[in-house]
Write a protein that binds this DNA or RNA. Sequence first.
RNA 1: GCGGUCAUAGCUCAGUUGGUUAGAGCACAAGAUUGUGAAUCUUGGGGUCGCGGGUUCGAGUCCCGUUGGCCGCCCCA
Length: 439
Amino acid sequence: MATFQTLPGFREFYPEDLARRNHVFRLWRRTAGAFGFAEYDAPVLEPLELYKAKSGDEIENQLFNFTDKGGREVALRPEMTPTVCRLVGARASALKRPIKWFSIAEFYRYERMQKGRGRCFSQFNADIFGEAGPEAEIELIALLVQCLCGFGLTEQDFYVRLSDRNLWFYYLETLGLDEPRIRAVLGAVDRYEKHGDDAFKGYSEQFGPLASDLKGKILAFLQIKSLDALEQVLAASGGEKLAARLTDWRRLLDGLAAMGLASFIQVDLGVVRGLAYYTGFVFEAFDRKGELRALAGGGRYDDLVEKLGGPALPATGFAIGDMTFALLLEQRGLVPNLVQAADIYCVIGGAAERKAAFADIQALRAAGYRVDYPLKEVAFGKQFKAAAESGARIALIYGTDELAKGVVKLRDLTERSERDVPRDQVLAMVRDSISGQTG
RNA sequence: GCGGUCAUAGCUCAGUUGGUUAGAGCACAAGAUUGUGAAUCUUGGGGUCGCGGGUUCGAGUCCCGUUGGCCGCCCCA
């Protein structure tokens, strides 16, 4: 039968699946609205250059890219950041500050399938442009936390690891490293959690072995898990830049604490996040059990808007992926049962009764009620069964006896009670009946 | 790109050392049932056993290849 199959790594959403996805999107959207973020959208297909400019040529391996009929090199978007930088950059001078934007969109990466990772996935993206201080991070991390808590997740379920690429950069500078060496060390720090000492192989191959006292300091630094410990280590190093960073750290952590979010936050300098365009605070959300890949990630990228052709504009943002998030909700039993229940189910006697019912069905639907009825003539018994299974709160019964009396029988499917309703009062009585139940 | 593992109905799975026409439960549909609730009973539709080749008198079963799923590695914006 299945002559054609779905392309590898792609997903199909049958109604139950889409209901779940919509539920997630709806809550994310509402949460972003509560935080004062405005929604935008943009093309799925972009010039390949947009991604090369940001991440370098090697990124092409992981893109869905091709040449279009006009000879243009194009790619399905693998992420939203370059796109939103273009949008904001193009109108930066006309946009009210701070610029707080979000989107919910589908992305494509040409990669191997893995748990929590496919070739197409959706992300919630939120970004703030035009705010250089940690106030932007407070706002974004608070939004991130609420986007997860809105589903019933708590600090028992997930946490946000918080780090700082600038701090790392300045600290490594004070240790006497130049920029190429600093980048190599940050790469090693990024991998250290997973690969241990092997993480420094790349550095050794490029620059020779790392002096052991230097390596000791780096390993100690990446294991820092609190602001106090960080202040102690840096007290010895001094330096204006580092002191300024510490001030920002205090403002950020104080702000988050004041919002009551301290229990979600873990200072963790072991996080530096892969690619090099992050310029300040970076953060990643993980499940507490450590069983899943990152739930969300983000950070500051103050140079990117300018790099992509816009004005210099500070920016910071994050994204939540839908796949790992769905896995976590399932694990915690937080996926609600989303049945699309009818409001009203019509039980119809025969052909003549059907015509009478159609007039009412049309009026009820125009009034906004979800009304179902059997498309073909079906025995009464079956219709009542169908009415019950539809989840409808009331059934309207169009039988010969009722219509002869000029009434319709209104059956309350919850209370199992019935009464006759004059034909011309059906809409009003339905309204009473349903509002009475919900009220 | 690499490695492991799996593939039988819409779903979950049986299917003997290779042996007739490949089964069950659930789901779906029809009837019992022209007037009242998720029940019951009966019946039905639905399969190129992922695909292709090979071994064999004979392959869902054994061998090779291939495609796809899952898990991991590389990578992860």
